[in-house]
Design a binder for these strands. Structure first.
Length: 495
DNA sequence: TGAAATGTTGGGGCG
DNA sequence: ACGCCCCAACATTTC
């Protein structure tokens, strides 16, 4: 009750000071603020982060602590169950208010809801504020009041809304409490990999934390945004924003990104054109759409959005799955993608579609195996985008690519990486092949392989499946699924 | 935010 | 000159 009792500011997936309404409200209350992060354990209802994202989290928390110290505060770290930690801290510090940014993942939101009830019994209020999405999924509805099932109408409806509220700058200063609760040491959480440190390749690619996020936004808006519409699909080109891992942990707000992009549109004649801007904002809104789907269907990460896929005859193929994970399928574009994922914790979007199509359709492995691997290895793993995108490729998702759209890994490689730059970067053993063969090494003659320094099957594997056969097999599996569900195979055409 | 199979068209070679 | 065939290029259909 006392106006000098502190506010617990609980950071979760909003590891930023910029455009953070929970923080601003806490500052506005005039009370001392205790910024807090809780590293939850495996059994937490708040989904634990994968290994790659834990690496990111470590650095992001360091950055957040650093930024808070510049404003006269610091970050308190705790490990364990949020309910007991928060009640304990409230009692210890006399705080009767907890402020946080609302989590748009419905399972986490439900956990928040029961937490709020438990806290209320202890006379502690748990206030949550929007900030992880551009629009509240509740307010975006179709004409008949349901959730959108198709992207384009969703995009139109979103654009007919009032524009996202403008981002709010970080506060100048945070009032420190008279006594700091004792926290734990960042190193005690073991977020960084050891033995081996498989994340050493991450460091050349990323600057985790809010400072890195804002720098990346600036770099993108001034750079690759111009030409984005044509360059974004080329994995050998640095043509995307690279903001996804920052967004995933809330180091930057989508409203901040939206505002920066819109501002750039009006800035300069020789800048990005309307097409570039629209293409990028549509990508940002795909993230929004994924959360919208997750909101209306919380089982999205584990269950087919289209239930007719429930009886699909997935193959149990541990060897195929392993070859896919390791980037040893014998298809250069697939292997390059999987190795980029392992080295950098990230994969170009075009290649994500290709490797996902390969796992699901060429190997007939359940999309959930791919979703799980991505969740553990991507620094940008996001519960909504990851699930929605895997289901999109599988054909079981909303507004999905039909199952019969099967990517040909050779043609995709030749179309989007015509000079083989992407392959040479991540599959160096193929670097000596001429462009004509770099996406189809299995068609090279022995002399050509020798000239490139490749011993077939040893320095690079033979294809683990024949794509043409795999395609036919996938279509047959789809036909069986349709046969089961009683859907007419084909309608006779009147003469 | 495909690919492959199938169908159609049109120019050129040639009897 | 003409019809026929071949086939590449493009369009449409199907999965």
């Amino acid at each position: 009750m006392s106006s000098s009792s502190p506010v617990l500011l609980w950071f979760r997936k909003d590891l930023r000071l910029d455009d953070n309404m929970a923080l601003l409200k806490a500052v506005k209350s005039g009370r001392p603020i205790i910024p807090l992060y809780i590293v939850t354990d495996e059994r937490s209802p708040y989904a634990p982060l994968g290994a790659a994202q834990r690496w990111w989290l470590h650095h992001s928390l360091q950055g957040l602590d650093h930024a808070l110290r510049k404003k006269g505060s610091r970050l308190v770290l705790c490990g364990g169950d949020p309910a007991s930690i928060l009640t304990g801290l409230a009692e210890e510090t006399g705080a009767d208010v907890i402020a946080a940014t609302a989590l748009p993942d419905p399972r986490a939101a439900a956990a928040d809801e029961s937490l709020a009830e438990a806290l209320l019994e202890k006379q502690v209020a748990f206030h949550r504020f929007d900030g992880l999405l551009l629009h509240d999924p509740q307010t975006l509805r179709t004409g008949s009041g349901g959730g959108f099932r198709v992207y384009t109408p969703f995009w139109r409806a979103l654009n007919q809304q009032a524009p996202p509220s403008p981002p709010r700058p970080a506060p100048e200063k945070l009032t420190a409490p008279t006594v700091w609760p004792e926290g734990e040491d960042l190193s005690s959480f073991g977020l960084l990999p050891t033995m081996p440190n498989w994340a050493h390749g991450f460091e050349s690619q990323w600057v985790p934390g809010e400072t890195g996020a804002l720098a990346r936004l600036h770099r993108f808006v001034e750079g690759a945004l111009k030409g984005y519409a044509t360059q974004r699909d080329l994995p050998g080109v640095d043509g995307t924003s690279g903001l996804s891992p920052h967004l995933a942990l809330g180091e930057i707000s989508p409203r901040r990104i939206w505002a920066a992009v819109e501002e750039r549109q009006q800035a300069e004649r020789n800048g990005p054109d309307g097409e570039d801007i629209a293409r990028y904002l549509k990508e940002l809104v795909w993230r929004e759409f994924s959360y919208h789907l997750l909101h209306h269907f919380p089982d999205l990460p584990t269950r087919n959005w289209t239930s007719s896929f429930d009886s699909f005859a997935w193959q149990d193929d541990p060897q195929g799955l392993e070859a896919w994970k390791r980037g040893l399928t014998g298809y250069p574009i697939v292997d390059a993608g999987m190795r980029q994922l392992w080295q950098h914790g990230w994969m170009h979007n075009r290649v994500r579609m290709i490797v996902a199509s390969f796992l699901i359709k060429d190997l007939l492995i359940d999309w959930r195996a791919g979703e799980e691997w991505f969740r553990d290895t991507l620094v940008d793993a996001d519960p909504a985008s990851n699930a929605a995108s895997w289901q999109w490729v599988a054909g079981s998702g909303a507004d999905a690519s039909p199952f019969f759209r099967i990517f040909n890994p050779v043609l995709q490689g030749e179309k989007f990486d015509p000079d083989g730059a992407y392959i040479r970067a991540f599959v160096p053993e193929l670097a000596g092949l001429p462009n004509r063969l770099i996406h189809r090494p299995f068609e090279a003659s022995l002399a050509e392989l020798r000239a490139a320094g490749i011993s077939p099957g040893k320095s690079y594997p033979h294809p683990i499946v024949d794509h043409r056969m795999a395609r036919d097999r996938a279509l047959a599996a789809l036909a069986r699924l349709k046969g089961e569900s009683g859907e007419p195979i084909k309608k006779a055409r009147p003469h």
